[in-house]
């Protein structure tokens, strides 16, 4: 069975660093490189920011993160909200498209895509959005449990 952790927190922007640091701390047991860890933190930060800025735009709701790691060093991070949902996922994922005002670059999904191995987005308007990201860490000579 995979090694899994779950985390839920209110969508205050002050929790963004808590969320990515917690996922990073969980994954640290795989002894990732500094680059791998920073890639993952960046991707998680983007997904959590989307929940805070978009899903719960005018409210505070809960953000749910499930992270799991496997013996072959695959990381899966699922980030879910029960917010407004995305009417047009393809449009939302276009680089530079943003509904978040001019201080938002519209590159959240681009960062998630380029800093992980795969990205899946499921969304229903009025019900919420789930982001699933996979990342495989490079091999190490000694393995799983240190």
């Amino acid at each position: 069975m995979n090694n899994e952790m779950k985390l839920s927190f209110s969508s205050y922007s002050s929790n963004e660093s808590f969320a990515r640091a917690t996922v990073a701390a969980f994954v640290a047991q795989l002894d990732p490189t500094i680059e791998e860890l920073s890639d993952l933190k960046t991707a998680v930060s983007e997904a959590v920011t989307n929940c805070i800025v978009h899903a719960y735009r005018d409210a505070i709701g809960m953000v749910y993160i499930t992270a799991s790691i496997s013996k072959d060093r695959r990381i899966t991070v699922k980030i879910r909200d029960k917010g407004c949902g995305i009417p047009d996922i393809a449009k939302a994922m276009e680089p530079l498209f943003s509904t978040g005002g001019e201080e938002r670059a519209g590159l959240g999904f681009s960062v998630m895509e380029s800093f992980t191995d795969s990205l899946r987005v499921r969304s229903k308007v009025g019900q919420g959005t789930t982001i699933i990201m996979h990342k495989k860490l490079a091999g190490r000579l000694s393995g799983f449990a240190r």
Binding site: R20, T42, E46, R104, A105
Partner: peptide, 9 residues
């Protein structure tokens, strides 16, 4: 650390 918010900045 910096995510895409840095680009906006």
């Amino acid at each position: 650390f910096m995510d895409s918010s840095g680009i906006g900045l």
